[in-house]
């Protein structure tokens, strides 16, 4: 299946396609927030404190009169960064180790999988808390923590997929022809295990945004003055009884992002799987 065909299969699923556009827009907004945002996010305006939506401020202003929309746009930066780092760590560490573990088998696999089981047994948030406690509280460390939490999942996925592909007849055919481990992994295993890993990445990136928001809400993620959706919720939370409206904007932003990430993941799963022939 060609890349073009995959794209076509993806675009034919309407919900997934819309979600994909949403995710792309989110990334554009985060990247170009300094140009796109109508106001500097930290500019207080004491004349318009906690104003409702208006033409000037589409999503209103917060307790210091800062533009909520602009803050939301800058907040997306923290979320996207978190998602990227959180996914790069497992892709760079977890996936290769998982492939090796599945491909080599034996003692290496035994030992590696026990370590993975051990990491998986620790609750994700607890592990993140521990890591930020050890490395210091800031967004980077929080993201690294999330990445470490994801690593065993990806290692497991890569391993189980590798085990499956390893016993396909085309892998044997390559071995009979004299293919070594690197050839087999590069030409047969990686191309065939990538689709599920791409799909998992999509799910985990949206989850990473949620975890980042949770950590920031708990004060363990992005630190002021860096803006994050979690941080915005935390501030709004203290004012919930005075202005419940403020909590809505970052809340909905997180929800939509999660939703889009998951629907897009599902769409990718269908688009990349040659066995699900018809879309």
């Amino acid at each position: 299946m060609t890349g073009k065909e995959m794209l076509r299969r993806f675009m034919r699923q309407r919900a997934a396609f819309i979600s994909g556009i949403f995710v792309v827009l989110l990334i554009v907004v985060a990247l170009f927030a300094p140009w796109l945002a109508p106001y500097p996010p930290d500019l207080p305006n004491y004349d318009r404190v906690m104003a409702g939506p208006s033409l000037a401020h589409w999503l209103g202003t917060d307790e210091l009169g800062r533009d909520v929309l602009s803050r939301l746009m800058y907040g997306a930066q923290a979320g996207i960064q978190a998602a990227l780092i959180a996914i790069i760590i497992p892709l760079v560490i977890g996936v290769p180790l998982g492939i090796l573990s599945g491909y080599l088998g034996g003692v290496f696999d035994e030992v590696f999988m026990r370590i993975v089981d051990g990491i998986l047994a620790i609750p994700a948030i607890l592990l993140a808390l521990g890591i930020t406690a050890a490395l210091g509280v800031n967004l980077w460390n929080a993201m690294i923590a999330i990445g470490i939490v994801f690593t065993p999942q990806f290692a497991r996925l890569a391993r189980s997929q590798t085990l499956q592909i390893r016993s396909e007849a085309y892998v044997y055919a390559a071995k009979v022809s004299g293919a070594g481990a690197f050839w087999t992994m590069g030409r047969h295993i990686i191309p065939n295990i990538s689709p599920p890993i791409i799909v998992q990445s999509s799910f985990n990136m949206s989850f990473a945004i949620l975890v980042e928001a949770s950590l920031s809400f708990l004060g363990l993620g992005a630190q002021s003055p860096q803006i994050s959706w979690g941080g915005m919720i935390q501030q709004a939370y203290s004012l919930m009884y005075m202005n419940p409206w403020l909590i809505l904007a970052p809340g909905v932003a997180i929800m939509l992002t999660m939703l889009a990430g998951n629907i897009m993941g599902d769409g990718l799963r269908v688009a990349l799987d040659p066995k699900l022939k018809k879309v």
Partner: peptide, 18 residues
């Protein structure tokens, strides 16, 4: 591999779909 080759039973799993 230059000397010996193999033909497999399942024509669907013997060719890499990608």
């Amino acid at each position: 591999g230059k000397q010996m080759q193999m033909i497999f039973q399942d024509p669907f799993s013997s060719l890499n779909p990608r």
